[in-house]
Structure formats: structure tokens, C-alpha cells
Nucleic acid binder design. Sequence first.
DNA 1: GTCTATAGAAAGATAGAC
DNA 2: GTCTATCTTTCTATAGAC
Lengths: 194, 194
Amino acid sequence: MYDGGVKTNYQYRGVDAREMLVASAQKLFAEQGVEATSPRQVLEDSGVGKGSLYHHFPTKRDLAHAAIDRMSVASLDNARSVLMSSGTPFERLSAYLTKPRDAVAGCRVGRLTSDATVMASDELQQPVHDYFTHLIDLVAEVFVEAGATPKRARERAITAVAVIQGGYVLSRALDDPDLMSRAVTGFLDLIEDR
Amino acid sequence: MYDGGVKTNYQYRGVDAREMLVASAQKLFAEQGVEATSPRQVLEDSGVGKGSLYHHFPTKRDLAHAAIDRMSVASLDNARSVLMSSGTPFERLSAYLTKPRDAVAGCRVGRLTSDATVMASDELQQPVHDYFTHLIDLVAEVFVEAGATPKRARERAITAVAVIQGGYVLSRALDDPDLMSRAVTGFLDLIEDR
DNA sequence: GTCTATAGAAAGATAGAC
DNA sequence: GTCTATCTTTCTATAGAC
């Protein structure tokens, strides 16, 4: 019997609900963390029904994994595009460090390191681990291009990424985006002509 | 009638229970955050009864406030004692940046900036705000002593504190205390003879 | 001040119809 | 794939005896 049309229809609807769920989860996780976000909130924000949520993501961990993975990949892609653009190594580094950030909102990925739900699961920690590993690698590469030894380049890359993450923490703590700007300026000032 | 002995006894017991509760809360908040810590866990860890908890701290927020206040004050006192010790400005700065830290555990105060319970309450945010404000002031003072202009001293102080906070994030993300060490070494290397 | 018993609400998930 | 109804456990507290 002919039922191709119906099948296709079902599949389209499925993909949409899945996407809506992941998008809402990403948003809510960025705002309040994974631990503090309930399946019910994701349901309400996405407009999707309870049955759909548990069909696509049997547990909260499954939904969290999908959302965290997306956020990490997107953040890394964004960093890569800035760090690998044209310009001198210092220009690219400077462009990455000063790129627009919602500092008071905090880092979507970095904040997960103090989220109980994430830290309780190796699976959820993995994307966070990978994000920072690759980000440091990318930044270190630019320092090497700038003439640093591999060891020193790596050290400075770690410091640079720490400045950003710390900038987020300070901007959030003092509710002021200026802390991020000044942390970055202070760092840039130190690496200039070195 | 004579009942002084009994009264005293009651008071001692009261103070002890209060102390036990705050101590347990501090420990659990440091391990898993405020949001993820339930009154029940604090009860079990402290060995205190449910009645006592709600007698001393009517709401979870009251307990959190007491514990966070303690942590912030203790952390600031610790920083002050290192930054105001004897030695050259660079020696003191270096001593502060390299002092032993449980980097993989994260910063007890800094992690609160991504805790939903804390960020939802001005009262709970206050100690965190004060901690970082005063810490930056202390570090800036040392940079001034080292010969920097007030403005530049402040900028470098913000960068220095960001390096520590970011070092915590990275050490936690990669589950490796070495990230903190290298972030600090990278920074120290840059401010040396400047 | 401390204890035990109780309670309303929400979290996290399952059951089974459609 | 999606929906509604249901369920268990935990959270955050309150009540009232001692």
C-alpha cells in the first residue's frame, strides 16, 4: 500500500521538534545552566509536547549532550574563523581577544565547568574538554606563527584563553562588561612587541 | 529559680549546630554549587536535625548567605595576607599567583557567578561582588608599588585576577592542575622586568 | 533549640492511546 | 512522532511536641 507521503510528513515533523528542543535547551542552558533547567522549562520554551521530548531524548542527559555538543562546536568554529582569518598573527590574536562577547552573560561553554549535572557525567564533560583543548591549540598555533617557541606559544595560549574565561567571571561578578575589556587590554598590552 | 546552667547548655548546643550547618554548606557548595545542594544534603553531612536547620536558617537562601559570606571573607583574608606580606612587589604578586590552589576543584567564590541560585538573588551576589572588587583593589595596589600608573595598575590587576579565574576554569575543564600553573607562568613571564 | 511527622510543589520520567 | 494522564522521588519548607 502507498504510504510514502505520510511517512515523509512524520519525519519532517520529527526533525522540527528535535531542532526546537535543542535550540530551547541551548538558550536555557546559557541563561541558567543545565542543573537549573528542567525538562518542563524546555517544553514550555519550545512549545513542544512532553511525549515528543521523551521520544527524541529519553533522559535529560541526552538532551543536554545534544545541546552542549552544538554549543561547543559552534563556539570553536567561531573562534577558528577569527584566528585563521587574514592579517598578522598579532592582529588575529587581537581580533579574537577583542571580538564582541556578551561578557555579563558568561561563557556558554566555560560556565559548564561549574555545572553539577555536567561535571557528574563524563559524556557531558567531553565536549567541554574538547572545546578548550582545540581552542588552546588554535591560539598556540598563532603564537608560533608570531615567532614563539612551541613551548612558550602553548603557555601564552593557555594564559590568553584564561584571560577570556576569567574576564567572563569578573564581568559577571561585577555585572559590568568593562571587566572583560580591561582584562583583555591588560593582556594585549603585555604581549605587544614581545 | 536557678536555671543558668541549662540555659548556657542550650546556647552552646545552638551555636554548635549553627556552625556545623555553615561548615557543611560551605563544603557542599564548594563541591557541587549552591543550586545543586539540597537542605537535606546539608542535614545529612552535618548530622544536625531538620528542626535545627530551619530554626537557624528559615530558608535555603539564609543558609547560603551565611556560607557564601564566610567563604568570601576567608578567601579575601587569605589573599590579603599574601599580597601584604614582606618582599618586593613582584615577589608578593608572584607569591599570590603561585600559591597552592586546588585548581581542579575550581574557585569557591568564582564558581558562584554561574550558580543559578546565587545569581537570582542580589543578596547572595553581594559577597561575590565585594570579594572581587576588593581583590582587584589589593592587586592593583601592588602594581602601583611596583611603579605602574594607577590606571595601568588597575588594568593589570584585572588581568591578573582573570588569569587565576580562567586558570580554574581550564584546570576543571581539562581535569588537570597544570593548566592553572601554565596560565600563571605565562602571565608572570610577561610582567617580569616590565 | 531540637526533633519527628507531614505537606505542597516541582523534577524527571513512564504508559499507553492516537 | 506526538499527546495526555499518571507516577515516584526529591525539594523546600511547616507544624507542633519536647
